[in-house]
Amino acid sequence: MWDIFWLMLWFAYLTAYIYVVVLIISDLFRDTALSGWWKAVWIVFLVFVPFLTALVYLVARGSGIADRAGRGRGVVAEADDYRPRASASPSEDIAQAKALLDAGTISQGEFEALKSKALGNQYFGA
C-alpha cells in the first residue's frame, strides 16, 4: 500500500516539476527584454541542473512572469464584438437594410436583425 502512495507522490512531484519547466521555457520565449544568449544560458542550465535552475529562475525572475503572461492575452482589442452596438447613424443603417430587403438581397429576419443592431438592442427582435 505504501508503494502506491509513494509512487503517486513522486508522480505528483514530477508533474508539478514538468509544469514549472514548461512555464519557465514559455516565459523565456515571451520575454522581449532578455537577449537570445541569456535565454540559451537559462535553457542549458535547465537541462543540466534542472531543479536548482528552476528555483533560481522563480526567485530571480518570478515577479515578472504574470506581467509577461498578461501581455499576451490582451492582444485582441475586439473582444466584445459579439455584442451588437448602437450605430453612429441608426437611421442610415436602417435605410440601407430596408433597401437590401426591398431588393430581395436579405430576408425579413435578417432585416430585423440589422435593424436591432443599428438601434443597439441587446437581444434581436427586442
Results as ranks from 00 to 15, higher is better:
D27L: 01
G109W: 11
A69N: 13
W37N: 07
A69L: 14
E112L: 12
K117C: 03
Y123F: 10
F11G: 14
E92H: 04
R71E: 13
R61N: 09
F5S: 02
E112F: 06
L28T: 01
E112W: 10
A95N: 10
Y17F: 15
K115C: 02
F111G: 03
F124Y: 15
L28E: 05
G109C: 01
P90A: 08
E110P: 03
I24E: 03
A88F: 07
S107Q: 09
A66V: 01
D102S: 06
F51H: 11
L100M: 14
V47S: 13
R85C: 02
G120V: 01
R68V: 00
A40R: 06
A88R: 10
S116G: 15
S107M: 11
A66D: 15
V76H: 10
V49A: 13
I94W: 04
K117I: 00
D93K: 07
L101N: 05
W38G: 00
A60M: 14
I106S: 03
E110A: 04
I25C: 08
S107G: 12
P84L: 00
L114Y: 08
W37M: 05
V21N: 08
A95F: 04
D102N: 12
R30L: 09
R71W: 09
P50E: 12
S26C: 07
A79R: 08
V47K: 06
A66C: 02
L100F: 02
L55N: 11
W37V: 08
N121C: 00
I24L: 08
D93H: 07
D67P: 00
A113Q: 14
F51P: 04
A95L: 12
F111Q: 05
Q96N: 14
F124N: 14
G70A: 11
A33C: 01
K117F: 07
A12F: 05
I24S: 03
S91F: 06
W37I: 07
L119T: 01
R73T: 09
L7C: 04
W10P: 00
A12P: 02
L46D: 10
L100I: 03
D31A: 09
W38A: 00
I43K: 02
L119H: 04
D93R: 11
